[in-house]
């Protein structure tokens, strides 16, 4: 009987937890908001299962489940309550590693380099030379006096800038992000970046810009800042990438929605 109540508790408790996450908006700390409908569906299924269990309290055990199983399943709720989760920050960025340059730019530039040898077989397959989705942003970005990376434009602009760093040399840029350093950077360098989330926070990676200038010395890891600067081109592992020459920096409050969500 205790086990039957535990099953009710697990099903309904989890749905309460999920509803709580949806209501407080904390859900976006865990999964990309485009999956919200999946979570709502799980709430409904969990409630249904909880009810079914309530209606069958006297039913026999269909599977034998050890006590540890129930304990493990109570963990998500216990951990949410006891060690409240929070947005990922620079302290985990060092564990995850930071990509200064998007896969696309590496891909593109490697293709350019090996073009003479492999030109014939890439041309043979029309799918191998796809229409590049970021080209269309170039004129738009070049028109703007200051390239401003907001929540909505961050991912697209980030990719465009990484894709065509040469095109934007000298342009002004402005963005918010957290400060992150690692051992490979010089003293006057740091990365200003955001976490990007594809499905869930477990697959988050830092996408950020290498920033250099004398003013970087005043910034601590994990500070949230708004930086303004001009774009330059640097080299990293033999590939061009954008670098921000820092001009002005201002400390800001951590954003309420700290991640960039990828949609595709």
């Amino acid at each position: 009987m205790l086990k039957a109540w535990l099953r009710v508790g697990i099903c309904l408790g989890m749905s309460v937890l999920l509803v709580q996450l949806i209501i407080t908006g904390e859900l976006s700390l865990f999964v990309n908001p485009r999956f919200t409908w999946l979570i709502v569906a799980s709430v409904l299924i969990l409630v249904l299962l909880g009810l079914v269990q309530l209606w069958n309290m006297k039913g026999s055990e269909l599977h034998r489940i050890g006590a540890w199983g129930y304990l493990v399943l109570l963990l998500p709720m216990a951990m949410y309550l006891l060690i409240p989760p929070k947005a990922l920050d620079a302290s985990i960025a060092s564990k995850k590693g930071v990509s200064y340059l998007s896969a696309k730019s590496v891909n593109e530039q490697q293709q350019k380099k090996s073009a003479p040898s492999s030109a014939s077989d890439t041309n043979a397959d029309p799918l191998a030379v796809p229409e590049d989705p970021y080209k269309k942003f170039i004129p738009q970005l070049q028109r703007e006096p200051v390239i401003h990376l907001s929540q909505e434009t961050y991912a697209d602009y980030y990719n465009t800038l990484n894709f065509y760093p040469q095109q934007f040399k000298g342009k002004k840029i402005k963005l918010k992000g957290f400060v992150y350093r690692d051992d490979t950077m010089k003293k006057n360098q740091l990365v200003v970046g955001r976490f990007s989330v594809t499905c869930c926070t477990a697959d988050a990676i830092v996408i950020g810009f290498l920033t250099e200038g004398a003013k970087t010395a005043t910034l601590k890891d994990n500070d949230w800042v708004e930086v303004t600067g001009s774009l330059d081109v640097g080299m990293y592992d033999g590939v061009d990438m954008p670098v921000i020459k820092l001009e002005a920096v201002e400390k800001v409050k951590p954003l309420k929605d700290p991640y960039i969500y990828f949609t595709y």
């Binding site: 999920l18 996450l21 859900l27 700390l29 865990f30 999964v31 999956f35 979570i39 998500p76 951990m79 949410y80 060690i83 409240p84 989760p85 929070k86 947005a87 990922l88 920050d89 302290s91 985990i92 499905c199 869930c200 926070t201 477990a202």
Partner: peptide
């Protein structure tokens, strides 16, 4: 805290 965040995100997803 990060541990809880990542655990819950894997679990919820």
């Amino acid at each position: 805290h990060n541990f809880t965040t990542i655990f819950l995100s894997l679990f919820i997803e």
